[in-house]
Amino acid sequence: MTPLLELRQVGKVFGGVIALRDVSLTVAAGEVACVLGDNGAGKSTLIKILSGVHRQDTGEYLVDGSPVRLAGPRDALDRGVATVYQDLAMIPLMSVWRNFFLGSEPTRGLGPLRRFDVARARRVAREELRAMGIDLRDVDQPVGTLSGGERQCVAIARAVHFGARVLILDEPTSALGVRQAAMVLRHVVRARDRGLGVVFVTHNPHHAHPVGDRFLLLNRGASLGEYPRTAITREELTSLMAGGAELEQLAHDLANPSET
């Protein structure tokens, strides 16, 4: 099966800094690809290339098996590649359904009577959220009253509704508590089960391991390898990340203070 999205030996240089070097990644429909790395590993650059904000300097970006050069985020969106950023682009004081359709409001009527189809917007927002397993009691409540996890879930549901085939999630669990993070992970799986490809970018192996089908590890802009789920344990994942070796050294040093 042709992957929905594929990067081949992609590199990106900013001025004199190599931000990304020879990184490859494939995402198939119904699959979660996790991108793991510490701060400065190149995760943000990778997201920006995938979402069309930056163009790669070397290598190829393929959507549905054919190479593309994205003109910008709108172009990516039109090809079904949607990015949910950490800061979410939602308006806290506006209701859930108003946020859900912001910028793409359904209308009815013609000419000066053309109006926001409020009944439909409410209904569709509720249905789409329920289809994602998010049962908000009241889509009229302001987004500001939702928890961080619920907000992420609404953003994911919005991206799915507006035709996303590949979801790129930028650190969706990083600011959340344990339970909230679990809720978001559940919806990542749900999106996968609906046949979407998901790129889940995180620095937390404990969040990535339960949901990922494959893992791309980044360190200082280069790939440390791409592993299928069966080939790697959570412990290996943790220790492979940049912090792993340092943490072991720290634990060792603390356990044997005389040696240092």
């Binding site: 800061d87 979410l88 682009a89 939602m90 308006i91 806290p92 004081l93 506006m94 108003r98 359709f101 912001l102 910028g103 409001e105 209308t107 053309r114 109006r115 926001f116 409020v118």
Partner: peptide, 17 residues
């Protein structure tokens, strides 16, 4: 009840978003 109304709330709430 109009798109413009939704936009008015949005630009006042967070123009960047």
């Amino acid at each position: 009840r109009t798109r413009a109304g939704n936009w008015i709330f949005a630009v006042g709430g967070d123009a960047q978003a």
